[in-house]
């Protein structure tokens, strides 16, 4: 099915070119996804998903299952389509006019791209944490309470207070901010802001949390806290995390999917991917020969 040649550049490689290999210098025939893209108890099943930005195809025929209560890491070089794929899972791409999605994406067996499916409801079930911390310019309390308020999840103020406290506690932020819940969320440090965004997301009690490079804008200590948090959250949530850091993928995920130029190259147990990759591209990427 997929016999496209990854490198269709007309220009031949320069033999005297020094330095690390680039994508251009790889001339590997692409086949079907290697490894185990499917799983038994799938929370989300994606079947032959293609995504286009106008005439530009960003995702080619990706079929991948995301298991119940697992942490799956999506890795790959910049521009490989992993963020685009992530954003199809809660229809965030709807906001981009020129974006078009083909294929089937099933959440608990239900297609999320039918007319019947409401994106607002979907996003309440599939929450998202973004690359750059983006708290609302409101108080810490209001940041967390916003989701429950618009969805009407609580019946009264004390229930809402409890939910806010619980969410902040789960996000490991409550101890740090309990005395200043009225302070603006934008006044927190970068790492705290990102944990606030996670608290805000889990306050809606979603089933799946999508994380788009949640620690890329943070320092190592804040990153460690976020990773610790992900390890705790996986008890209750299915987590899909896009990351540029292979160490991070290795630390937090059970399964890892490697994307390359819009194609899903390899999926497997995280340990296996990092110790014994089956595909040549995966190996080159994780050994740092390009990316």
């Amino acid at each position: 099915m997929n016999e496209a040649v990854l490198n269709d550049l007309a220009e031949p490689n320069k033999p005297d070119h020094a330095g690390p290999e680039t994508e251009d210098s790889l001339n590997i025939e692409y086949t079907d996804t290697v490894g185990q893209p499917l799983c038994e108890e799938a929370k989300i099943r994606t079947k032959e998903v293609n995504v286009y930005y106008a005439d530009n195809q960003a995702i080619h025929n990706v079929s991948l299952d995301i298991g119940e209560n697992e942490v799956i890491a999506l890795i790959g070089p910049s521009g490989c389509g992993k963020s685009t794929y992530l954003r199809t899972l809660n229809r965030m791409n709807d906001t981009i006019d020129i974006c078009r999605v083909e294929g089937q994406i099933l959440l608990d067996g239900e297609d999320i791209y039918t007319k019947k499916q409401d994106p607002v409801l979907l996003r309440a079930r599939v929450g998202m944490v973004f690359q750059k911390p983006n708290p609302f310019p409101k108080s810490i309390y209001d940041n967390v309470a916003y989701g429950p308020r618009i969805h009407g999840l609580t019946r009264n103020k004390s229930e809402l207070d409890d939910l806010v406290e619980e969410s902040l506690t789960k996000a490991g932020l409550f101890q740090e901010v309990k005395d200043r819940l009225d302070a603006p969320g934008t006044g927190l440090s970068g790492g705290q802001q990102q944990r606030l965004c996670i608290a805000r997301t889990i306050a809606v009690q979603p089933e799946v949390i999508l994380m788009d490079e949640p620690a890329s804008a943070l320092d190592p200590i804040a990153t460690a806290k976020i990773e610790e948090l992900i390890n705790e959250l996986k008890e209750n949530f299915t987590i899909v995390i896009v990351t540029h850091s292979m160490q991070q993928a290795a630390r937090v995920s059970q399964r890892t999917a490697y994307f390359h130029m819009g194609r899903l190259i390899e999926v497997g147990e995280t340990d296996q991917i990092f110790t014994n990759p089956a595909h040549e591209l995966t190996e080159k990427y994780i050994t740092g020969r390009f990316g």
């Binding site: 607002v120 409801l121 979907l122 996003r123 998202m128 310019p137 916003y146 969805h151 965004c197 805000r200």
Partner: peptide, 24 residues
């Protein structure tokens, strides 16, 4: 990013505009 934050939480377009975009 502010619009995305609101939409990502499941706010409708209208809520996003009136709760976040317009005040900003």
């Amino acid at each position: 990013s502010l619009r995305e934050a609101a939409l990502g939480l499941g706010a409708s377009k209208m809520q996003t505009v009136f709760h976040h975009v317009l005040p900003a």
